[in-house]
Deep mutational scan, measured.
Amino acid sequence: MQVTWGNVTVTFSNPEEAKKYAEKVARKLGGQVELHNGQFRIK
């Protein structure tokens, strides 16, 4: 499962870890987490 924002992509084998990481990054950037085609995207 991947977490992407800007031109950065981070890949996780565990979807739960990916979700936690995406939420943490979104909080830092003041963005929203979207699940899109099996990727968490931060907008």
Rank of each mutant, 00 (worst) to 15 (best):
V33D: 00
K24A: 14
G30V: 03
L35M: 13
E23W: 08
R41W: 14
G38E: 04
K28A: 14
Q39L: 05
E34L: 07
H36Y: 11
Q39F: 06
E17V: 09
F12C: 12
G31W: 09
G6K: 05
N14G: 07
P15F: 15
A26E: 01
E17I: 10
V10K: 10
R27M: 10
V33R: 00
K43A: 11
G31F: 07
I42T: 01
L35Q: 09
K19Y: 14
K43G: 06
F40M: 08
F40H: 04
F12I: 04
G30H: 10
G6P: 03
K43I: 15
Q32G: 05
A22R: 01
V8I: 14
K24E: 13
H36L: 13
A22Y: 02
L29W: 09
L35T: 08
V10I: 14
E23P: 00
K24I: 13
K20Y: 10
G38L: 03
T9A: 04
N7V: 08
N7P: 09
P15M: 14
G6C: 14
N14A: 07
N14K: 07
G6Y: 09
W5I: 14
W5A: 04
P15H: 13
V33N: 01
E16K: 07
T4Y: 08
T11I: 13
E16V: 11
A18V: 01
K19D: 02
L29P: 00
V33C: 04
L35I: 13
V33G: 00
E17T: 11
R41K: 10
A26M: 02
R41P: 02
K19T: 05
E16S: 11
K43E: 08
A18D: 00
F40A: 04
H36A: 09
A22F: 03
Q32E: 13
P15R: 09
T4M: 11
N7A: 07
G38F: 04
A22P: 00
L35H: 07
Q32T: 15
F40V: 05
G38R: 04
K20F: 08
T4S: 14
V8M: 09
M1P: 07
G30F: 05
G38I: 02
N7K: 09
G31I: 06
E23T: 07
Y21T: 02
I42E: 02
T9Q: 04
Q39K: 09
L29D: 01
G38N: 09
E34A: 06
N37W: 02
L29G: 03
L29C: 12
K24N: 10
W5E: 03
K24D: 12
E34V: 12
R41F: 15
E23V: 08
K28N: 08
Q39T: 08
V3A: 01
K19N: 05
E23R: 06
Q2T: 15
F40E: 02
K43Y: 12
N37C: 13
K43C: 15
R27Y: 08
F40G: 02
K28Q: 13
A18E: 00
K24H: 13
F40R: 02
G38A: 03
G31E: 05
G38M: 04
N14M: 05
E23Y: 13
T9S: 07
V33Y: 06
E16Y: 09
P15W: 14
Q39G: 15
M1L: 12
E16F: 10
K43N: 11
Q39V: 12
Q39E: 12
V25A: 05
K28S: 10
E34K: 05
A26P: 00
N7W: 08
N14F: 05
T9L: 06
I42C: 06
V25M: 13
E23L: 09
W5F: 11
N7Q: 09
L29T: 10
L35R: 07
V3S: 00
K19Q: 11
E17P: 02
E16P: 03
S13W: 08
Q2C: 14
V25S: 02
P15L: 12
V33I: 11
A18W: 02
V8G: 04
K20T: 10
I42S: 01
V10D: 01
A22T: 01
K28D: 09
E16C: 14
K20A: 13
T4N: 08
L35G: 04
P15E: 10
Q2V: 14
A18T: 01
S13I: 10
V10H: 06
N7S: 09
T4I: 15
T4H: 12
T4K: 11
T4R: 13
M1W: 15
Q2P: 03
I42Y: 01
L29Q: 04
I42M: 01
S13Q: 11
K43V: 15
N14V: 06
H36P: 01
S13P: 12
Q32Y: 15
E17G: 05
R27N: 08
T11A: 08
V10G: 01
G38T: 03
E17K: 09
A22K: 00
E23I: 10
G30Q: 07
R27V: 09
Q2R: 11
M1I: 14
N14Y: 05
V10P: 00
F40L: 15
E34Y: 10
K20N: 11
W5P: 01
K43L: 14
V25I: 14
K43W: 08
Q39P: 00
G38S: 04
L35S: 07
A18F: 02
G6D: 15
R27L: 11
H36M: 12
K19V: 07
W5Y: 10
T4G: 04
A22C: 04
E17F: 09
F12E: 00
G38C: 11
I42P: 01
G6V: 03
W5M: 07
G30I: 03
F12K: 02
I42Q: 01
N7M: 05
K19I: 08
G6T: 03
V3Y: 01
P15D: 05
K24Q: 13
V3C: 05
A26G: 04
W5H: 09
E16H: 11
G6Q: 06
G31S: 08
N14S: 14
Q2I: 13
G31L: 10
L35N: 06
K43F: 13
V8A: 06
E17N: 08
N14L: 07
R27G: 07
V33L: 07
W5S: 03
K19L: 14
N7T: 10
F40T: 03
